[in-house]
Amino acid sequence: MLSKNQIFVVAAAALMILAGLVMPYWFSFLVTVALAKGLVVLGLVILMRAGLVSFGQGLYYCAGAYAVGAFSDYFQTDNVLLLVLVAIVCGLVISSIVGLLLSRYRDIFFAMFSMAFSMILYGVLVKSAALGSSDGFNVTKPSLFGWAAEFNGTNLLSYWVAIILACVAGAIIWRYMRSPMGMTGEAIRENEIRVEYLGVSVQKIIYIKYIIAAVLASVGGSITAMTVGHIDPEMAYWTTSGEFVFIALMAGTGHVAAPLIGAVIFELMRTFAFQLSPYTWQMILGIALLSIIIFLPNGLWSLTDKFKKGAN
């Protein structure tokens, strides 16, 4: 039997999928890219709850995107399932190697090391003329066994894939966060030595969290690549990773839905800031983040608690 929450999520997802048929194209595109980023931020939130801030999620975001780009070009395939799978494997392989080192570090050292690895990927890609250097290259539009999901000239497949993946990932992570292993994250943040004394390997817990975050980031990268149709090394640049941290801080780490909704709000805010003041859009974003940090230190999600308290 499905619980009330599960029914709600499935209904919301179904509604969003149907809404894709009537919403304007720019909006479904924005939601797709936002959900892709939201998945990356979801991974970041898992790490943040364990007290680790990664400034290098761009590494997996970019690796996932390039895996999709290179694979679809080399094997001449545009099957969305295959491409997402390739990105997952790519994120899994890289993170299980890099994670061995990173899971030994905490605080600023973890942040800096994670950033260093993403900048290495950036540096390598910029030097690779075959991959288009800093200009990157174009990626084919995805299809589902040849079906492109075209409606009025609008390709809805990546939008639907993004919604489904976000819901599935959100549900899995929601369960994970409530499992003993997920809960250990907060314990590690509060007191790592006590956790060790309880007989749990902190390094192993963090290693697994790191891999989960990496896989989510590469899935996000694969969705971005298929939706935008173009990838470049900028995806691994530290400012991209910084944007994920920005969204995480803005949204809050209280719930799995927070990063996904936060990413949509961030993209909406940015696009209207772009439109309303082409010269000072950065200032609008900066002021927004500052006021959220000052007035809502736990992110936008803490608003829901306030509403709940107000209702009681």
């Binding site: 890219v33 971005t224 935008v228 470049d232 900028e234 993209e267 696009t271 439109q275």
Partner: peptide
Amino acid sequence: GATKQVSEYRNLV
């Protein structure tokens, strides 16, 4: 970046 520009292009149109 390019992702942002593709998105903004849609918005323009």
